[in-house]
Computed example of a mutant assay.
Amino acid sequence: MILDRFQLTGQVAVVTGAGRGIGAATAVALAEAGADVVIASRTRDQLELIAQRVEAVGRRAHVVAADLSDPAEAASLAQAATDAFGRLDIVVNNVGGTYPRPILETSTEFLEEAFRFNVSTAHALTVAATPAMLGGDGGAVVNISSVMGRLAGRGFLAYGTAKGALAQYTRLAATDLAPRIRVNAIAVGSVATSALDVVVNNPELRGKMEDATPLRRIGEAEDIAATIVYLVSRAGKFVTGKVFEVDGGLQTPNLELGLPDL
């Protein structure tokens, strides 16, 4: 049956930024598809709650509380997976983000920090995971990029540059790691996570964002998690080096920060 292609029974995944939002939804979705999951973020209490949800669907969860803005900490998750479960098949590089900031307030250091948090950490974990994947049945990597990696909006210089770099990193890494490891990315649109609370909890702002989105809604974390299950499973086994746009149909930014002309 076609649904069998979406099953991940016997596989092991690492999900970064898994304490809440897209990472949490992804960890649970991968477990529902049959995978055991290493979940990592800064906050152990959040991770323990997600571990309970993973275990409630009959899979195992291994919790790692770490500062994933440090590429070395991110890289260590590959060893944590093989130590805990004896293999590694799937990596979801979800951790990342950068606060909006006007260009004249965007220092070189801030830009480099954005690149490290969004790109260097993904590279570190991907490279560390590669030997384990090649030692098994191969594997799949999904990087979480953003719609702002391809659109232009004031205030998003550091964030958009880093996410655009992550999209191109995905294409290049896919070429280097083919044929046994597939690498894809998702350019995420506006999704109702804690990062968007200021909009989601304000009816006026939310209405403006929804009206500026062709599908007239804000995304759910499960919209992204479902795409990830497709990309890492046999359902997506003929897909690599692609950036999937899961963004409600955006062609222009749906949130303007109101920054004035210089």
Rank of each mutant, 00 (worst) to 15 (best):
E105F: 09
T108R: 08
T108E: 15
F110D: 14
E112M: 12
E112G: 05
E112A: 15
F115H: 06
F117Q: 13
N118A: 06
V119T: 01
V119C: 01
V119L: 00
S120H: 04
H123Y: 14
T126E: 09
T126S: 15
A128Q: 08
A129G: 14
A129P: 06
P131K: 07
A132P: 04
M133Y: 09
M133P: 06
L134I: 05
G135D: 12
G136L: 10
D137E: 15
D137C: 07
G138N: 10
V141A: 04
V142I: 01
V142A: 01
V142E: 03
N143G: 04
N143K: 01
I144H: 04
I144A: 09
S145G: 15
S145I: 08
S146G: 10
M148R: 05
M148S: 11
M148F: 11
R150L: 02
R150M: 07
R150F: 12
L151W: 05
A152K: 06
G153A: 15
R154Y: 07
A158S: 12
A158C: 07
Y159E: 02
Y159H: 06
G160Q: 03
G160F: 01
Q168K: 07
Q168L: 13
T170H: 06
R171H: 09
R171K: 12
A173G: 00
A174P: 04
T175W: 07
D176L: 08
D176I: 05
A178S: 14
V183A: 13
V183N: 07
N184T: 11
A185C: 11
A187I: 03
V188P: 01
V188Q: 05
V188S: 04
G189Q: 11
A192L: 10
T193R: 09
S194C: 00
L196K: 06
L196P: 01
D197V: 00
V199C: 08
V199Y: 09
V200L: 13
N201K: 15
P203S: 11
R206G: 11
M209V: 15
D211E: 15
